[in-house]
Amino acid sequence: MTIDANGSSPVNRLSPPAEILRYSAFTHDPAGGNPAGVVLDASGLDDAAMLTIAAEVGYSETAFVTGRDEASRRFRVRYFSPLAEVAFCGHATVALAVALGERLGTGEIVLDTLAGEIPVATMVDGKGAVLATLTSVSTHSRPAATAELDAALKTLGWAPGDLDPALPPHVAFGGNDHLVLATASRERLADLDYDFDGLAEVMRRHGWTTVHLVWRESPERFHARDPFPVGGVVEDPATGAAAAAFGGYLRTVGLVTGPATIAIRQGEDMGRASDLLIDVDPLDTRTRVTGQAVPIG
Rank of each mutant, 00 (worst) to 15 (best):
L199D: 02
N6A: 15
I118V: 12
L156V: 05
D281P: 09
T183C: 15
R76N: 13
R225P: 09
T139D: 03
V214L: 05
G248W: 02
V38F: 14
L192K: 14
V86H: 03
G175K: 03
A152N: 10
D197L: 12
R186Y: 09
R288T: 04
R286N: 09
M123F: 15
A36G: 05
S141A: 12
L156P: 11
V289Q: 01
D69I: 06
E70T: 09
R204C: 05
M203N: 00
A244D: 03
A129L: 10
D281W: 02
L153A: 01
S218V: 07
A293I: 04
A159V: 04
R76G: 10
G248V: 01
G207A: 02
D191F: 13
A132W: 04
V280W: 00
V110P: 11
V120C: 08
I20M: 13
G128K: 08
G271F: 13
P10C: 14
G33A: 12
A63Q: 11
P35D: 12
S81M: 11
R188A: 15
D41T: 14
R288H: 06
V94I: 15
T290H: 13
S9F: 07
D195E: 01
N34D: 11
A184C: 13
S8T: 11
S138C: 06
L96G: 15
V57K: 04
A238F: 03
G267S: 12
A48Q: 06
D41N: 15
V253A: 01
A71W: 03
S138F: 07
R221A: 04
R205P: 08
D195C: 04
P282N: 06
D226R: 05
V38P: 07
L153P: 02
T239H: 01
N176E: 05
P17I: 14
W208D: 00
G126Q: 08
T261F: 06
A55Q: 13
T239F: 03
V77P: 04
P227I: 00
T252Q: 12
L192M: 07
V234D: 12
T52M: 06
F64L: 08
D4Y: 09
G37K: 10
T27N: 10
L192V: 11
F64S: 12
V214M: 09
P219M: 02
A166P: 14
F88A: 00
A184I: 09
D195G: 01
D193Y: 10
R76T: 15
K154T: 08
V130Q: 14
L104I: 01
Y59W: 01
D112N: 05
T133G: 02
T183W: 08
Q292L: 09
L255V: 10
M123T: 07
I118D: 00
L156T: 02
S81Y: 05
R68A: 14
A132R: 02
P10V: 14
L199H: 00
G174C: 08
W158V: 11
K154W: 06
T62H: 03
V280N: 01
A92Q: 08
E201S: 09
L255K: 13
P295T: 11
N6P: 01
L255Q: 15
A121T: 09
E187Q: 15
F228A: 04
R205M: 12
